[in-house]
Design a protein around this nucleic acid. Structure first.
Length: 805
RNA sequence: GCCGGGGUGGCGGAACUGGUAGACGCUACGGACUUAAAAUCCGUUGGGCCAAAAGCCCGUGAGGGUUCGAGUCCCUCCCUCGGCACCA
């Protein structure tokens, strides 16, 4: 008997699939479709480890399962290839990003092919391909046309030593990731995308998604909608007013001071000469404080400006302070401080000895310990006394609104998206700056604006992108007036290309549009999106935003691109996330070599519940390997022998179909594997423990195994005499419920809830029969001795419990 | 601090809607085959009492509760991993 030679077999079938174009898929309106998408990777130099494999195996299992069920399955792969590592390599080693990217992609592709994954390679995309980023730029232009892309002065991270702007993810603990210098803030004109215009839709849309609760919550928190009011405060002896946002207008009578962000535009005007020195010193301090310090130290600091505002409900004069606990970019950058009912204001009032007036009592009318931040009943609030917080929020805003001094509003934590990077390796922003015409979009016919080749990737030192140094590229003519103009030298962030890539896969070579409308209509939305939870907010929010925008301009017909999201858990080694620096990376290549891709695939599933983190065990794969060998031995023993199925073997077979199907559908993939093992253990006993089974059982087993172990299943399928691929020939089997009915069942016998033994009965045996059998058990009789039976509980097929006293 | 996940043998984990806790796999030990080894196959493997078996006791992070019966439901708490964090 020959052992199963995975190396030969897997290679042969991979060739077969390639030669017969098995993975190619076309739109077919007569068939149902299934779009199974992996988050496409950034092709890094270090390749894939077994942690990455987990998600890819999962999506491939699902794709193959759906294929066997007769769906047209779109399961594409591509490369999110713009990004910093390639650019850094270019700076440090002088390798052109295109070159390093291409070789990394080749390695990734090899690894993915070794998984045996059924990717539609004829639809491969690459975000750095000009034919692709042409459309990334096109979407930007459409946003620009509609006022959703605009420029604004924004502080960016700047490394004084590397002389370059840094992305947030390159700043670690306030220091430059590469050289360790303190990162500074520099104000530069940045491109922004007005994602806030979609805040409500982004929030609302979450309701219809089958996403992990965790991700929905994270997005909700990120959008951070809060309802409240804007209230105007006049300034004493000055023709100015300050507007504040509050969610608690019911506490307005308790506002005893006001706090502005140090950057607030009125600070200078409000500061009296007496306090000017201190105020300026404080502002200077906050500016030099790194964001890390500002976050770490939550002790309240601040200074008085010398001016007073007037509380609009009681005309009380309240001092105006500045403090860095008030953020300039939320609300109006100013707050009314109600120390009795807000923890931060309370702390501030304590530090500086400011008045604290309670205006909310609890529901029993008692003033609780301050600060009391819950809703309650109003006190010390003039004619509003006695109202509940809820009523008062309304009434007070209405009252002030009559005089135009308040308006109900909604605020979001989400900010507009800073969309420019001072980088070479990204999509050029297709805008031209003309002295007479201003910002002029590059005409669609001139897209793509290609990245020029450069010799030197060194940053310019001005905080501009390296593109700024390429004069022949920067200097151009204005598309509007034909005069001298300069190209925008900022590039797009890495997220840009991934915001819409799932659309391109349906029509990757289209030159006329980002994708054909009919094809979009057929394939989208994505039925299953598989990827790591690290993209819970940014990528998944940006992609939703893009989709909504594309719907608004008539490119797509749906709001939400990803119906169902699945986040696979991380695979850890020695209790830690796998990383090169920790030296705990498990490389799949050797495992594939030794045990085969199928064994590795199955182990990736078997390791634990797919959504939960799992610890890698080197010898865990051994068990899976043995399982494959064992099944192979059974197949070899049986295939040329004529074995008649028995009732028992048929029952096991039908039960297996049911179990595997149900567990696949509910993503309990670790238990899919154990179900196969249990089946093989049991079925090999059926025919006298001879490690042989009937042909029908082998056939079913092969099909059910095919999503998990495609090469292995093909080999069995061929051994059965089939000539084409199992994925072409076979269809997913169904089970007969009648075959699941068992006639005997073993149930537990308990005395007072403690199990004392088991009895095997006919499924529909009555209580008397059950009891009679139970009384034959020594342990049951021991427990009953000298006791009185109070009652018995008998649940057919489940339990017999005898209650005694 | 807030939100979410997790806590079950030596290890990874199973357990439907409350019904025999520890399936399946790993490890370890014993045995068969072999000149020997590898591979394979068979058996044992939560802890304890007992020479052994029968039998009994304990056992799903801790403590309470509901129930004939709780890993599963309710209350209080602990540990751990992630996310957010001065958003008024």
């Amino acid at each position: 008997m020959s052992t199963y030679n995975h190396k030969q077999v897997e290679k042969r079938w991979r060739n077969f699939w390639q030669e017969h174009n098995i993975s190619s898929v076309k739109m077919d309106l007569d068939k149902p479709k299934y779009y199974c998408l992996d988050m496409f990777p950034y092709p890094s130099g270090s390749g894939l480890h077994v942690g990455h494999w987990r998600g890819y195996v999962l999506s491939d299992v699902f794709s193959r399962y759906k294929t066997l069920q007769g769906y047209q399955v779109l399961h594409p792969m591509g490369w999110d290839a713009f990004g910093l590592p390639a650019e850094n390599d270019a700076i440090n080693k002088g390798i052109h990003p295109t070159v390093s990217t291409a070789s990394n992609i080749a390695n990734f592709k090899r690894q993915l092919q070794e998984i045996g994954a059924m990717y539609n390679w004829d639809r491969e995309i690459n975000t750095t391909d000009p034919d692709y980023y042409k459309w990334t730029q096109w979407i930007f232009l459409k946003m620009f046309e509609r006022g959703l892309a605009y420029q604004k002065e924004m502080p960016i991270n700047f490394c004084p030593s590397c002389q370059t702007g840094l992305a947030n993810e390159e700043v670690v603990g306030g220091e430059c990731e590469r050289c360790g210098s303190q990162v500074e803030k520099r104000k530069l004109k940045q491109w922004m995308l007005k994602i806030t215009a979609y805040a409500d839709r982004l929030l609302e849309g979450l309701k219809q998604l089958e996403w992990p609760e965790k991700v929905l919550k994270m997005q909700e928190a990120w959008i951070g909608r809060s309802e409240g009011a804007e209230i105007d405060f006049y300034i004493q002896d000055m023709d100015e007013k300050i507007s504040v946002f509050t969610t608690r207008p019911d506490t307005l009578f308790g506002a005893t001071f006001m706090v502005l962000a140090p950057e607030h535009e009125l600070v200078e005007k409000l500061t009296t000469d007496e306090y000017r020195e201190q105020v300026e010193e404080y502002i200077r301090q906050t500016q030099t404080k790194s964001s890390v310090e500002r976050m770490a130290n939550k002790d309240k600091t601040g200074v008085f400006t010398g001016s007073y505002a007037i509380n609009p409900v009681n005309d009380r004069l309240i001092p105006i302070w500045i403090s860095d606990y008030v953020l300039i970019d939320y609300g109006s950058g100013a707050v009314m401080a109600v120390p009795a009912h807000d923890e931060r204001d309370y702390e501030f009032a304590q530090v500086f000895g400011l008045d604290i007036i309670p205006v909310i009592a609890d529901l029993d009318g008692i003033i609780p310990e301050l600060p009391f931040v819950m809703d309650g009943i109003l006190i010390n609030s003039g004619k509003f006394d006695g109202l509940s917080s809820k009523e008062a929020k309304d009434s007070i805003v209405k009252y002030l609104a009559e005089e135009g001094r308040a308006v109900a509003t909604v605020q979001y934590k989400m900010r507009d998206w800073v969309f420019s990077r001072q980088r070479y390796w990204g999509e050029p922003i297709p805008i031209v700056h003309c002295d007479s015409c201003g910002q002029v979009p590059v005409p669609e016919s001139e897209l793509p604006v290609r990245l020029p080749d450069v010799k030197n990737y060194q940053p310019t030192g001005t905080g501009e992108s390296p593109l700024a140094a390429i004069e022949e590229w920067v200097n151009t003519t204005c598309p509007a007036c034909g005069g001298k103009a300069k190209r925008e030298t900022n590039t797009m962030p890495q997220w840009a290309g991934s915001c819409w890539y799932f659309l391109r896969y349906v029509d990757p070579h289209n030159n006329e549009a980002l994708a054909d409308k009919e094809k979009i209509k057929y394939w989208l939305p994505v039925d299953l999106y598989v990827g790591g939870v690290e993209h819970a907010v940014l990528h998944l929010l940006y992609a939703r935003f893009y989709t909504m925008f594309l719907k608004d301009i008539g490119v797509v017909e749906f709001d939400e691109p990803f119906k169902k999201l699945f986040n696979q858990g991380m695979i850890t080694k020695d209790g830690a996330k796998m990383s090169k620096s920790k030296g705990n990376v498990v490389n799949p290549d050797e495992l594939v070599e030794h045990y085969g891709a199928d064994a590795l695939r199955i182990y990736e599933l078997f390791i634990g519940p797919p959504e939960i983190d799992a610890e890698w065990m080197d010898n865990g794969i051994e068990g899976v390997y043995r399982f494959i060998q064992r099944v192979w031995a059974i197949v070899e023993n049986s295939v040329n022998v004529n074995i008649e199925p028995t009732r028992k073997s048929e029952q096991l077979r039908h039960r297996l179909i049911k179990t595997i199907t149900e567990r696949l559908e509910s993503f309990k993939l670790n238990t899919v594997v154990s179900a196969f093992m249990e089946y093989v253990n049991e079925v090999s006993q059926v025919f006298g423990g001879k490690q042989m089974i009937d042909r029908k059982s082998i056939e079913t087993l092969a099909i059910l195994l095919a999503p998990l172990a495609p090469h292995f299943a093909e080999e069995i399928w061929a051994k059965l005499g089939n000539e084409n691929s199992i994925f072409v020939n076979a269809t997913w089997p169904s089970f007969d419920p009648e075959m699941l009915v068992v006639d005997e069942v073993t149930i537990a016998v308990q005395v007072n809830g403690k199990t004392r033994g088991t009895v095997t009965l006919a499924v529909d045996a009555n209580e008397e029969t059950a009891k009679a059998e139970a009384f034959k058990i020594t342990a049951v009789n021991n427990a009953l001795e000298g006791k009185e039976i109070v009652k018995t509980i008998y649940v057919k097929g489940k339990i017999l419990n005898i209650v005694v006293k």
